[in-house]
Amino acid sequence: MSVLKSGIIDTDVHPWVNGDIKGLLPYLSQSWQKHFDGRYTLPNHALRPPLARASSNRIDEIPPNGGEPGSDPTYVSSQLLDRYNIKHAILSSIQAGKLVSLPNSNEAIALARAFNDFMINEWLTVDPRYKLAACIAVHNPIEAAKEIRRVAQNKSVVAIFMPLFNILMGNQHYHPIYDAAQECGLPIFLHPTGTEGGFSTSLQFAGGVPSTYIERHTSFPQIGMAQLNSLVFEGTFVKFPNLKVVLAEFGYSWLPHVLWRMDQNWRGFRKEIPWITEEPSQIVLDKVRLTSQPVEEPNKNKYLMQIFEMIQAEKTLMFSTDYPHWDNDFPDHTFTSIPEELKQRIFHDTAAEFFSLD
């Protein structure tokens, strides 16, 4: 049963490539096929979900013909898009996000291109409701910018999935990426990759290394806070005024206190960053959007509505399922007690405007 008659936009769906690198071989050159011969799996973080098969995916979503959950685009269409009246589903490959764990930049560049070609040819052609957040290898910004301009020629590519390296996003290292994304009118899409704190090239958590999966998972909002701070105070949105950013699966309840602290410090120390001429909170509200999953719902609806008021949820929040992960949020059980006008914004309108859909 659908939540909205107008349809829903799901801003975070995770497709899967069976066989990992082996499944990408048809999209790699012969020389790269020889390079990866016998080495067909991207590395996994040591701290995995304590579930069956140590997988983050729902085992009840395994396709009828086998393979990993989320690996059959036709099955996902029936299980997710048809069932919940999903008008558009934005695909972001967590597998591709693991490329930040590779110290070899040439490997990451080749695999990012192969992941994108796989998704374009084997997903976008199956159902027009699928849209893609194409992945880039942030190791080499010049090559990443070339890849952005290449995939942008496909109108079903609506964002650029930028796996997070161990360099904060405001750093000039990324400027070629932002220049290309702005030129092509594509938002930057951020999402946890499962590599955080586990590899020398991936970003680290504040305070030290978590010792359990639950610690790692609970600490994800730290990442969103740190990247937001860096983007705003380094002047990224001043240098690239048309750049837009999505924080997917980092939560949203932390945003009010971060905005308050940013504004307070800006008033006290703005001499240090004279290029920021308006309140940081306004920059964030204009340029940044967050996704709903995992839903952070207080035990009283009035508290949720207070959070929504503080973050201007009608403007900043977009619905996502996180399908097919074990903790996904389906639309008929998400934000069931909020006003219909706000629901329309969160489940459809904001994403339609932000990603230039419809």
Rank of each mutant, 00 (worst) to 15 (best):
residue 13 V to E: 00
residue 16 W to G: 10
residue 33 Q to R: 06
residue 33 Q to A: 02
residue 37 D to W: 00
residue 37 D to C: 00
residue 46 A to I: 15
residue 50 P to G: 12
residue 56 S to E: 14
residue 58 R to G: 14
residue 59 I to R: 12
residue 60 D to C: 09
residue 65 N to D: 08
residue 69 P to D: 09
residue 75 Y to F: 14
residue 78 S to N: 14
residue 81 L to V: 12
residue 83 R to P: 10
residue 83 R to F: 09
residue 84 Y to R: 10
residue 84 Y to F: 15
residue 94 I to V: 15
residue 95 Q to F: 09
residue 101 S to C: 08
residue 105 S to Y: 02
residue 108 A to P: 01
residue 124 L to G: 04
residue 131 K to T: 03
residue 136 I to T: 04
residue 138 V to T: 13
residue 141 P to G: 05
residue 146 K to H: 12
residue 147 E to I: 01
residue 151 V to Q: 00
residue 152 A to R: 03
residue 154 N to V: 12
residue 155 K to Q: 14
residue 156 S to H: 10
residue 157 V to H: 07
residue 167 I to G: 03
residue 174 Y to S: 05
residue 177 I to N: 01
residue 181 A to P: 03
residue 184 C to E: 14
residue 188 I to L: 04
residue 204 Q to N: 13
residue 246 V to R: 02
residue 247 L to E: 06
residue 248 A to I: 02
residue 251 G to Y: 00
residue 257 H to S: 15
residue 260 W to N: 13
residue 263 D to S: 06
residue 277 T to K: 15
residue 282 Q to E: 15
residue 291 T to R: 01
residue 304 L to E: 11
residue 310 M to S: 13
residue 310 M to P: 05
residue 312 Q to V: 13
residue 325 H to M: 11
residue 327 D to P: 06
residue 337 S to K: 15
residue 339 P to R: 07
residue 343 K to G: 13
residue 344 Q to H: 09
residue 346 I to N: 06
residue 350 T to A: 08
residue 353 E to N: 04
residue 354 F to L: 00
residue 356 S to H: 05
